Amino acid sequence: MPTPPFQHLTIDTLTAWLDAETALTLVDIRDSGSFGAGHIPGSRHLDNDSVPALLEAAPREQPLVVVCYHGHSSQQAAAWLAGQGFAEVYSLDGGFTEWEYRLPERVERGRP
């Protein structure tokens, strides 16, 4: 069985990376209403319309973290993005739902 082209990332690891100000690209693939209601600070909303801009601007050499609702659909998006030449692609285990449950003080409300 082939190894998936992305890795799983725990909330604890992402928190440590953000606290250390690790250079990374953080994308949220939930619908725009959900993203506007709350998202991880520093993340950008990614949908079909914004994918070309991401592919053009995001550094391929730094980690790319994909966030969805529960950590399931982000795996498919992460696999696709890994195929676009990003060196390190991660799917956030538990997704935004788990992030918000565990770290409600680290949720940004409204559009960044």
Score class of each variant (00 low, 15 high):
94 G>C: 09
81 L>C: 10
6 F>S: 00
8 H>Y: 10
23 A>T: 04
27 V>R: 01
110 G>K: 01
21 E>K: 15
4 P>G: 01
56 E>I: 00
73 S>I: 05
69 Y>H: 13
71 G>A: 10
8 H>W: 09
84 Q>G: 06
53 A>K: 07
85 G>W: 12
31 D>Y: 11
94 G>D: 06
80 W>K: 11
23 A>N: 06
110 G>N: 06
68 C>S: 13
54 L>I: 00
63 P>V: 10
75 Q>F: 03
56 E>H: 07
92 L>S: 02
40 I>N: 01
54 L>N: 02
51 V>A: 08
32 S>H: 12
107 V>G: 13
11 I>T: 12
88 E>G: 05
46 L>K: 02
70 H>V: 09
88 E>Q: 15
48 N>H: 12
53 A>C: 00
14 L>D: 04
2 P>T: 10
15 T>R: 15
89 V>E: 04
10 T>C: 02
11 I>W: 11
50 S>W: 09
64 L>H: 05
73 S>E: 02
108 E>D: 05
46 L>P: 01
74 S>A: 09
83 G>N: 03
36 G>W: 05
28 D>W: 01
30 R>C: 10
38 G>N: 07
47 D>F: 03
42 G>I: 01
85 G>D: 13
74 S>F: 00
110 G>D: 07
96 F>W: 11
15 T>S: 14
70 H>A: 14
21 E>P: 00
59 P>R: 14
84 Q>K: 15
43 S>L: 05
33 G>M: 15
48 N>G: 15
62 Q>L: 10
31 D>N: 14
32 S>R: 13
48 N>W: 11
26 L>A: 04
41 P>K: 03
27 V>H: 04
68 C>K: 02
63 P>F: 13
110 G>H: 11
55 L>F: 12
96 F>E: 12
110 G>S: 11
109 R>N: 02
45 H>N: 12
68 C>R: 07
75 Q>V: 03
61 E>T: 13
85 G>S: 11
4 P>Q: 09
44 R>Y: 02
72 H>N: 12
111 R>K: 01
106 R>S: 02
9 L>I: 10
44 R>F: 00
73 S>T: 12
71 G>M: 09
3 T>F: 06
63 P>E: 12
50 S>N: 11
77 A>G: 07
20 A>K: 13
105 E>T: 11
109 R>M: 04
65 V>W: 08
82 A>N: 07
46 L>W: 05
67 V>E: 05
